[in-house]
């Protein structure tokens, strides 16, 4: 069965305050990096999933992202899925 490689990016919704991101932005200015307007922290989750075909892999990964990896009340998620061949090379 083909092995699909995927990455799910979870970020706080724009309306939700990110105090950890703000604290990091303040540290960036102490490092001498000025002009940083926004810094928001999210999560990247890397997965490998065996599935009979791409459509099945996609639907399982979407279900997983929406029901476990992200909480849609406060977070958005984006799914990147690679073809099995690319996944094996990576």
């Amino acid at each position: 069965m083909p092995l699909y490689q995927a990455r799910v990016l979870v970020s706080l919704r724009p309306s939700v305050l990110d105090p950890a991101g703000e604290a990091t932005r303040a540290a960036a200015s102490r490092l001498g990096v000025t002009g940083l307007q926004t810094l928001r922290i999210g999560k990247a989750i890397e997965l490998q999933l065996e599935a009979p075909d791409r459509a099945t892999a996609l639907s399982q990964l979407e279900h997983l992202s929406d029901r476990l990896l992200a909480n849609p009340v406060i977070e958005d998620w984006q799914l990147e899925i690679l073809d099995p061949a690319q996944g094996q090379q990576a």
Partner: peptide, 17 residues
């Protein structure tokens, strides 16, 4: 309880960390 859906909304990081 919020994750379970018995109560609405979510609890997030304290504003002042």
């Amino acid at each position: 309880l919020t994750e379970l859906g018995l109560l609405p909304g979510a609890l997030t990081r304290n504003a002042k960390l």
